[in-house]
Design a protein around this nucleic acid. Structure first.
Lengths: 391, 391
DNA sequence: CATTCAGCGTTAGGCATCTTAACTAACAAA
DNA sequence: TTTGTTAGTTAAGATGCCTAACGCTGAATG
């Protein structure tokens, strides 16, 4: 085999790695620093094969030695981690109030991060958000150090649905993020819905750690679900899987269901309207937002507790619907309102009454969930790119 | 490598086939009779590799020559198909009114089939059905011919949910099918929910042929959904995915949802109750069952059309719910009532109003869908068994 | 301090599974 | 009969893994 030579005469990344070398690279990325015997045991590879794999990866700068580890007995083993040649990724959460950005190596060592607060809350994906993304990415690119290696992938979490290749990207508004922002050329771009990203993060680092099958349901200003089945994110035919905010409502004999009513009914705006309309005069001033409502409920305020409980029951009915359709076994509740553990008892009671048994947990990751999820997806793409498995 | 010898000295199936031989075997099973160049082109294998693979399979009797095929030019090629050594499968649809049974080779050549009508309709999985299955399987086993080869798998479609390994098989009632029936020992048994089986059949032979992502929704006495996402049947954590008959209902502000009400409301029994209660005196005698109702509607009977239309709208609302949750892109309607094309216009209109765009089609397979689906699943298991990939 | 032993890493050799290249075989059309 | 095309076989080689055996390096031991 002959190497393809670039103009400057430097051999371009051959990317003709053996299967074992690829597996070792992925293991190092996902499990962190490890010794050869550790990786070999996990992957079932012999010591000679490990030697060859590490040699291949070291030649490309994909891994580097970082020290020695002494077991209780015998010679100590060399410890490796992902090297500078493997490069880095940029992950961006293009949210409606903040743009969160992380730059990391493929084994998730943080190189740079920044949170930018939008001057005005945006209610849909628009050019304002696109401009903010452009600015934050430019700032990150300006920070780049030589030892970061090449930028392998840029992940962006967007609040729209995202269609796969061949889908109608116009209808989904997913490309609005690019109106004022042009990603660096030659870099793989990963676009994913923000709720799906949060679900990914909960799976790897949060309340669903290690779970292959679960649903992540976000309840805040908007309602959405990220569905993980058998370790695979479910996107549906046109990226609309989990758009439960668009569920029709009400469903009852003789009543005419309306599209999207669930979001309007369960979203925090309409909740607060009902709270204010039905707040006892002797219960002090009504809460200004859901955080205050939850705070009052936690402190024992009866009116707040009543509203939280009623809303939890409504949420439970929607969760039960999702559970009946896909039987995820585990539901993680997230979002500004949904992540509150105050909801758990009533949601659990409602779901188990209306549907099959499902465990209900509160999110553990808070506002970082989305950016951590898109980081993970960008890293997965970057690994494929570095290993020449794009095609 | 040494062959493990059986007591009679005949070499036991070594089952140490090369990857290419396994791929060739699967291709022959799913694509039917083919020549070596055809298979090689599909799998991207060279001619020497094809030679070796065919030789391996022929030695085991897994494939056999069936003739020569002449192209427009050049030497003619030998055509092969699955051979007797590959064996056969038994597929059983343990339904509430009939037990349908098919015996087939792994490339779906029908060896024997029988439909047994239960004396009395059964409303749940019970010993009566189990006895019928036992009888029908015994009859099939009695018919077995030497040239059928070994029985590799027995598939049974049951009207209960089916939990995976490690699930609570007691709670699902799936094992009731074995109360009066003991499957032949040493044969792989495949148990699957009947609606899921019908979905599999629609995917390979019916209205969803070639589709990787769709939902099959069955509307008859009971309501159920089979979900296919990315070519994988979705079973959920405890086999309850698609149990939309258990959806809670009604969902409306101030109303208390009840578990399982969707089935009671959308099932054909309650439909006919409403039809009879609301049948004009001048419209002739009311229909006795849904088949008559559909017949009258097709003939232009206004009362029948009104009821069909209203029920189609209700079905559309449930379909829209499923579409909003998983975005299958395509929904196939099946079952005694659901398969009628009369429903299509109103279901389409309702779904597209309440949810994302989804294509709606009527089932093409009728009552055979379930047994064809379990046959396919049994064949897939049989292929793995024959290739020694069980573990 | 020398010995022993466990575990790490390398070298040598082998095997399984694929490939390409080159050949023979069989057929239709010229 | 010749020619070109396709089917199938044989030979040789590339790849990617393995096991076996041996040297290296540490801690524990006498």
């Amino acid at each position: 085999m002959e190497w393809k030579l670039e103009q400057n005469g430097v051999a371009s990344s051959p990317a003709a790695l053996t299967g074992s070398a690829k597996a070792v690279f992925r293991t190092l990325a996902f499990s962190g620093p490890s010794t050869r015997p550790q990786i070999g045991a996990v992957l079932g590879l012999s010591r000679p094969t490990m030697s060859a794999a590490i040699a291949e990866l070291e030649r490309l700068g994909y891994v580097e030695m970082i020290g020695m580890v002494q077991g209780p007995l015998g010679r100590r083993a060399v410890q490796y981690r992902i090297g500078p040649g493997a490069g880095h990724v940029i992950a961006v959460d293009a949210g409606s109030t903040h743009v969160r950005l992380r730059v990391s190596t493929l084994d998730r060592r943080l190189l740079y991060s920044h949170v930018y607060r939008l001057p005005v809350r945006q209610f849909v994906m628009n050019e304002e958000i696109s401009r903010a993304v452009a600015g934050q990415v430019a700032a990150a690119l300006a920070q780049a150090q030589p030892e970061w290696g090449p930028l392998r992938a840029l992940g962006i979490a967007v609040p729209t649905r995202v269609v796969g290749p061949g889908g109608d990207a116009e209808a989904s508004r997913q490309n609005v993020v690019f109106t004022a922002f042009r990603p660096p050329s030659g870099v793989a771009v990963v676009l994913e819905n923000n709720v799906n990203c949060a679900a990914v993060a909960e799976r790897y680092y949060g309340a669903a750690e290690g779970e292959e099958t679960f649903a992540y349901i976000q309840i805040g200003l908007k309602i959405g679900m990220g569905l993980m089945l058998g370790g695979q994110l479910v996107r549906g035919r046109s990226g609309a899987a989990g758009e439960i905010g668009h569920l029709s409502f009400p469903l009852a004999p003789g009543m005419e269901p309306q599209a999207g009513e669930v979001e309007r009914y369960l979203g925090t705006e309409s909740l607060m309207v009902r709270v204010r309309a039905d707040w006892p005069v002797d219960a002090g001033p009504p809460p200004g937002d859901t955080a205050e409502l939850l705070f009052l409920a936690e402190r024992g305020n009866q009116a707040a507790q009543r509203h939280v409980d009623r809303h939890a029951a409504d949420i439970g009915a929607i969760v039960a619907t999702c559970v009946s359709v896909v039987d995820p076994g585990l539901v993680v509740l997230g979002g500004g309102f949904g992540a509150s553990p105050l909801l758990l008892p009533r949601v659990r009671e409602t779901v188990n009454r209306l549907s099959y048994a499902a465990e209900i947990r509160s999110s553990l990751l808070g506002a970082d969930a989305t950016v951590l999820g898109i980081e993970r997806l960008a890293i997965e793409r970057a690994l494929s790119a570095a290993l020449g498995e794009d095609a």
